[in-house]
Amino acid sequence: MVENANTQRTSDSGVSIWLDDLSRTRIESGNLQQLIAEKNVVGVTTNPSIFQKALHQVGPYDAQLKEMGRVNVEEAVQELTTTDVRNATDIFHDVAEKSDYVDGRVSIEVDPRLAHNTEETEKQAEILWKKVNRPNAMIKIPATLEGLPAITATLAKGISVNVTLIFSLERYEQVIEAFIEGMVQADQNGHDLKHMGSVASFFVSRVDTAVDKLLEANGSDEAKALEGKAAVANARLAYELFERKFAADPRWAALEAKGAKKQRPLWASTGTKNAAYSDCKYVDELVAPHVVNTMPEKTLDALADHGNGAPSIEGTYEESHKVMDQLSNLGISIKDVTDKLEADGVAAFIDSWSSVLTDVQAGIDRVNG
């Protein structure tokens, strides 16, 4: 098996390439091992929409469903999804070991219906962590206001966390604070910090989808010139915030001395939704050390075929601030955009989860006659 030059260049520039997809078919076919060997894939993220697609398939999950019998559908979903995540973490075991648990991570998300319930999110995060029972797993918790204290509490138990559905710089700053405080508490609680991990999933392309509609509605030349620029500028300023916050916080310096690893920015929603833009746009324009880019397979294939992978964030902060100022001058509120994107993201995942429950119930009924 031969490594791909473009994914290797991206990886060498400091980007951890994770796959934004998982299914039993992908695991059992050997495809996941192939992506590790050939395209520098060093982790996997899942979400309710990904599991909805996987569990909608008739066949791959029937044997396990039959073995479980007529169980409650919620229990069945948890068994099916944690089995896939556990098996995927085993595939990534060597990657995790070689990277000292920086990579080799596989994420599973708490029930999205709990996104505004701090206590229940915290409880389910612990249940999922124990159920998967692998040190290279990560539990995904949404960055809602109610999710922030659950992130801290979950980390305090020694559990690795992927914070998801981050759209705004304001919320990202709160996430970093929740992470550092969680690691302080984990240390106080006697947990080994060295193998704990966390990423902050900052969503990218959806920002352009939303802002471009507002720019098109404006119709001016100034607005037209800004199309396709908001998402990358927003993410680059998130990286600026990442650099600044971890460099300036004395609590972090003390934790790092004990072996703690920074919570890395993870670029999510990196598939290009506008055909006028490069299909590698949200990879090639966000290359920097200490970041993760989780890609749908279509984007990964595009990167492998014709991606650049050269560093592309350094030196862009001034330009990115200017883009945000120009949007504001046109009357476009990034806060309004990102607030709506967060609410829409939670709602979309809840819809996907409802479909998961329906499909798995149909599977239970089918295999049990």
Rank of each mutant, 00 (worst) to 15 (best):
T299P: 05
D284S: 06
V232M: 09
K213L: 15
D284E: 12
D301H: 12
V283T: 11
P265C: 10
R244N: 13
P296N: 14
K229I: 00
E240H: 14
A310G: 10
D249W: 04
T209Q: 15
N293D: 09
R244F: 11
R244E: 11
L300N: 01
A210W: 06
G271V: 10
V204E: 00
A304H: 00
A223V: 07
L241P: 04
P289T: 11
L303R: 01
G271L: 13
P265V: 07
D212F: 07
P311M: 07
G259Q: 09
A253R: 09
E297M: 13
N293Y: 05
L215K: 07
L300Q: 01
T272R: 04
F203M: 04
H290G: 10
K229D: 01
K261L: 15
N274M: 12
I313K: 02
G271S: 14
P311E: 07
N274V: 04
R251M: 14
G228M: 07
T272H: 06
K213E: 15
K245S: 03
K262P: 01
S205F: 07
E222I: 08
R251P: 08
K224E: 14
K273Y: 15
K273P: 14
K229C: 02
L300C: 04
V207N: 02
V207S: 04
K261P: 07
A253N: 10
A235H: 05
A276H: 14
V283M: 10
K258N: 11
W267Y: 08
A302E: 03
P311A: 09
W252M: 07
L303Q: 04
D284N: 11
N293F: 04
T272D: 06
V204D: 00
R206A: 12
D221V: 13
M295E: 04
R236Y: 11
G259E: 07
A268R: 05
E256T: 13
L241W: 13
P250C: 15
H306P: 02
E285W: 00
L286H: 02
A233E: 00
S278C: 06
V204M: 03
L286D: 02
H290C: 13
T299Q: 07
S220I: 10
E243M: 11
R251Q: 15
A288T: 05
Q263W: 10
P265A: 08
G309Y: 00
G259H: 08
A231I: 03
A302C: 06
G219Q: 07
V232H: 03
D249F: 05
D221N: 15
T270G: 08
S269L: 07
A268G: 11
N308M: 05
S312Q: 06
V292I: 14
L241F: 15
A217D: 14
E216S: 14
V287Q: 01
H306F: 13
V292N: 02
A223E: 05
N274H: 10
W252F: 13
K273V: 15
A217E: 15
L303M: 12
I313C: 08
W252N: 05
Y282H: 06
R206H: 15
N234P: 11
V291F: 10
A254W: 02
F203P: 00
A248K: 13
T299H: 06
R264T: 00
F203C: 02
S312K: 03
N218C: 13
S220D: 10
A302F: 03
A268Q: 07
L214M: 10
P311L: 09
E297R: 12
F203Y: 06
G307S: 08
R244S: 10
